[in-house]
């Protein structure tokens, strides 16, 4: 009922198809539009453009900075995602399973990095890294990104841990497993989607972070959003659309590969 396709009527089913189809088009529209923009000849994003061209692609590949920036972004985002998840995991266990008072208040304390305007975090951490002499380093990028990514990872994991029925884990312990073993073999597999979603959020927060990154960047080290932001501010060139288009195709490719691997393993 309501959660298996067989159990809902065709009326509800077709309404659902229609509604979600509309929302999916809403989500997809700007993405396809970026692809179209990247081939438009107008530098000023006039659409439809006077004619079509691939000159922005030439511009993109003429400039090694874009590729370097993308690689830096990837590196920073991966490290951020791993560290944020590693810190968020024990935190979530303590907050959900713990029996001490004030857990809700600790929770809101840990979500503070989401509430404080990013500009403030950016200026505050930038001053700190300046006095430590770390600005423009990978360390500064990763630490400052972990700060803002942590709440995302934490909320996601807490959410799935809350729904996990602890008695299953207890059953494993009663059957002779150690608590740690039970957590690794029983609990983790069940809350895996939550952990994965948390890691993904952390990755994306870092991947898309603009305001802090602009502060942390140096001429030698910048991430993709920094490169895009400075390009957007000065020249609205469709090279940005090119960069986005390539990113879109990379993510489609990753999704396809993931799907194929999943089918094989079944």
């Amino acid at each position: 009922m309501l959660l298996t396709p067989q159990s809902i009527g065709w009326k509800l089913k077709s309404t659902l198809y229609f509604i979600t189809g509309a929302i999916a088009s809403f989500l997809a529209l700007p993405i396809f539009f970026i692809v179209a923009l990247s081939f438009g000849s107008s530098q000023w994003l006039i659409f439809p453009p006077p004619h079509w061209t691939t000159k922005w692609y030439e511009r993109f590949f003429d400039n090694p900075q874009w590729i370097e920036a993308a690689l830096t972004s990837l590196q920073v985002a991966l490290m951020t995602s791993i560290i944020a998840t590693a810190i968020a995991l024990p935190t979530s266990f303590a907050l959900v399973r713990g029996k001490f008072a004030g857990r809700d208040y600790l929770y809101s304390l840990f979500t503070l990095p989401m509430i404080v305007p990013v500009v403030i975090i950016a200026v505050a951490t930038y001053s700190m890294f300046l006095s430590l002499g770390l600005t423009g380093t990978l360390v500064a990028f990763v630490i400052s990104h972990v700060i803002v990514a942590l709440p995302f990872a934490m909320i996601s994991i807490i959410n799935s841990l809350k729904l996990f029925d602890k008695s299953i884990e207890n059953a494993a312990v009663i059957c002779g497993a150690s608590r740690l073993e039970a957590i690794f073999k029983v609990t983790f597999p069940v809350i895996k989607p939550g952990i994965f979603a948390g890691a993904l959020f952390a990755f994306l927060v870092s991947w898309d972070e603009v305001v802090i990154s602009v502060m942390m960047a140096s001429p030698e080290l910048q991430t993709l959003p920094v490169k895009m932001w400075s390009t957007l501010r000065q020249d609205l060139t469709p090279v940005i659309a090119v960069a986005s288009t390539l990113l879109i195709f990379i993510s489609i490719f990753i999704m396809l590969v993931a799907n194929i691997l999943r089918k094989r393993s079944l």
Binding site: A24, L27, A28, P30, I31, F33, I34, L37, L45, F47, L204, D208, V210, L224, P225, M228, W229, L232, L236, I240, A241, A243, S244, L247, I248, S251, I252, M255
Partner: peptide, 19 residues
């Protein structure tokens, strides 16, 4: 579709909406 939209740069999506 949801994942694809998340993976696309925030700046790029915002500019796309502007146009």
């Amino acid at each position: 579709v949801v994942l694809l939209s998340m993976w696309t740069s925030l700046l790029a999506r915002t500019y796309s909406w502007l146009v």
